[in-house]
Design a binder for these strands. Structure first.
Lengths: 363, 363
DNA sequence: TTCAATTTGTTCGTATGTATC
DNA sequence: GGATACATACGAACAAATTGA
């Protein structure tokens, strides 16, 4: 007996959306009075209760309010309509090294577009990244800029990123990339080429016994290692695994320098050291000097990032420029395009630029 | 005629709060089924419609959900009850100088308590601060940590802070203070005493012609000036306004150094310069050296904050320690107490600590 | 000040549709 | 299929606040 007239539309929700359109249209200004419940009931040919049900939704959202005994009015809140206008930025660390500058670049673009940043950090642990993303899924955000943690390990939490896509929350990776997520939007440096340039520079200076210190648990470390290896290969220098020291995030402050010191003290020839970044390079230089060798006269050292620590004590590292703010700005721009559903080049690779300092010299 | 039996309690709201208590009590776990509408109607002796009205509120807030044809159930969301868990941090700048470290300290405490940071900055303009606060009033936040902009000017937007109080959003000032808001929660350095210690140090080294460069538009500048003046007074050295150079945020990069150079080149005796902060001190040292004078042999210079720029090129400024992370942690702690409505000391003043470097020496 | 009309707020009753078990 | 429970819809009545005559 049911009058199955196709899909059953609820009366009140139809009226609700009609009223919503009315309120959102230019015809309505904040403070305007809406027709009374009885008038609307007549107009739409429904009961007063049904009209009330329709109005309830709008009132809950704060777009209209009721004055007892007087009427219903369009709310002030119509002016700044509801949008979270929050962007989450998930980094490995927040206040060290180059991160403040990257965040500054992101903020520059986003705050100019009325967005606020929610900052989170993972301490470069997979666990931390999962925790961050899980929390963010419960939050009101319009997009995410994320620096992957331990990006060289296999990404076991692709489900979280799929959830983001399901919720239509766009995201952009910066700095590193998960192999499994390589087709997603990225803004990256060409780490492989940067390291290639540094190593080539050292070879050009006549060095042959070139050591490398790389981080094993992010994609940058892997790529910088690859650039180092390719430069050696191009120059016909055989790649020797015993000249490469790998380290993890967790032993950054302990391991690699002592390994290098042992090698130097063992009497093996060391012409130069290509370091994962400037921080490592600074430690390496100190470690080398502790062994009695000089930098750059005995051993040349290169960094990466041209960070604040690249230039201290009158010493300028030979390093690669990290366009910190620019990286942030590019990622923010890309994210804005994604939020606005505009077509956009979803993979930006920044060309590296060599800075020759006074920590490298001819052999 | 009205049965004015005291205050007329709406039937449904009484039932709603009873149900709310039930749901919030330990008797209910997520997934538990509530009694049916008819059972509740009987139990409370009201119509089924009234019960529905009461349940509506709880459902809107997400604490219960309905399964058509089955019943009503306690929601998962009861676990993480509704709270935005966002804290806004409003600073003058974000990525320069000491700010990343302060933010790092704030984050350390708040992220451990499940809060996220929303970062905003004012560029140290009153206009910027008003814009930030206005935007934040429309956002879902549980508290604010704010560094006042141009805190030495009269605060013309106390209404915004009153709005925050009205909305019961607690806030904590850090670094500076508005005179009109001095009774609100603050975490500050004792800038007056810090500057006093620096000036006293210079006097102890035998200097008499001690100049000062201070920022005029924040309370720190004013207080550091006062400490300078008090130290002179204590030592019986007359205060000479022509030895004090004031500058504004907007001309930080131009004005004060050239004024000082003019003074030096005019042949007036300059023993020492007390600078507003380390950044200024670095510029001042460069400016002095441009005139051919030496630091510290001819002129001693002091900074303030012991920031990263305090120690460069093998030169360590004589300065005052700024406990950057600690300041952030203290402010975050205070804010947490306020959010939890716990009693808390609402004014913390951190004792300054002198660092003697190699930019000051005996006269 | 009073009063009546208007408008929203609350509560009851009733009926029907539809999903679940 | 039948019992149960939630969802939608309508009608009616009175309470309480506002407004303007």
């Amino acid at each position: 007996m049911g009058e199955t007239d196709g899909r059953r539309e609820k009366k009140y929700s139809g009226i609700e959306s009609e009223l919503r359109d009315l309120v959102f249209s230019d015809l309505c200004k904040p403070g305007d009075k809406l027709p009374s419940e009885n008038v609307l009931a007549d107009r739409y040919g429904v009961s007063r209760q049904t009209v009330r049900k329709a109005l309830e939704g709008l009132e809950r959202e704060g777009y209209i309010y009721a004055k007892h005994g007087s009427g219903r009015y369009v709310s002030e809140r119509m002016l700044h309509r509801k949008q979270s206008k929050n962007i989450a930025v998930v980094m490995t660390y927040l206040s060290d090294y180059i991160f403040p500058k990257v965040i500054g670049g992101i903020d520059e673009v986003l705050s100019a577009n009325g967005y606020d940043l929610i900052l989170k950090h993972t301490n470069n642990s997979r666990h931390g990244e999962i925790a961050c993303l899980t929390e963010l899924l419960d939050k009101d955000i319009d997009g995410i800029i994320i620096e992957p943690s331990k990006s060289n390990l296999y990404c076991k939490h692709t489900d979280l990123f799929e959830k983001l896509e399901e919720y239509e929350i766009p995201y952009v990776f910066i700095q590193g990339e998960y192999e499994a997520m390589a087709d997603r939007p990225h803004v990256l440096l060409d780490d492989e080429k940067g390291s290639f340039l540094l190593t080539q520079h050292l070879i050009g200076l006549g060095h042959r016994e070139i050591y490398g210190i790389f981080k094993s648990d992010d994609s940058q470390g892997q790529k910088r290692h690859n650039g180092y290896a390719r430069a050696l290969a191009d120059a016909g220098i055989p790649y020797d695994p015993s000249r490469v020291i790998w380290f993890y995030t967790e032993d950054r402050k302990v391991h690699p320098y002592t390994s290098l010191q042992k090698i130097i003290r063992s009497g093996r020839q060391v012409d130069a050291v290509v370091c994962y970044n400037d921080q490592i390079a600074r430690h390496v230089i100190r470690a080398i000097r502790e062994t009695g060798k000089r930098v750059p006269e005995d051993i040349s050292v290169t960094g990466y990032d041209n960070s604040e620590s690249a230039n201290v004590d009158g010493s300028q590292l030979t390093t690669i420029v990290h366009p910190q703010e620019e990286l942030g700005r590019l990622a923010a721009d890309m994210l804005l395009h994604l939020i606005h559903r505009e077509k956009v080049e979803s993979r930006i690779v920044i060309e590296p630029e060599l800075v020759v300092g006074n920590t490298t010299t001819e052999a």
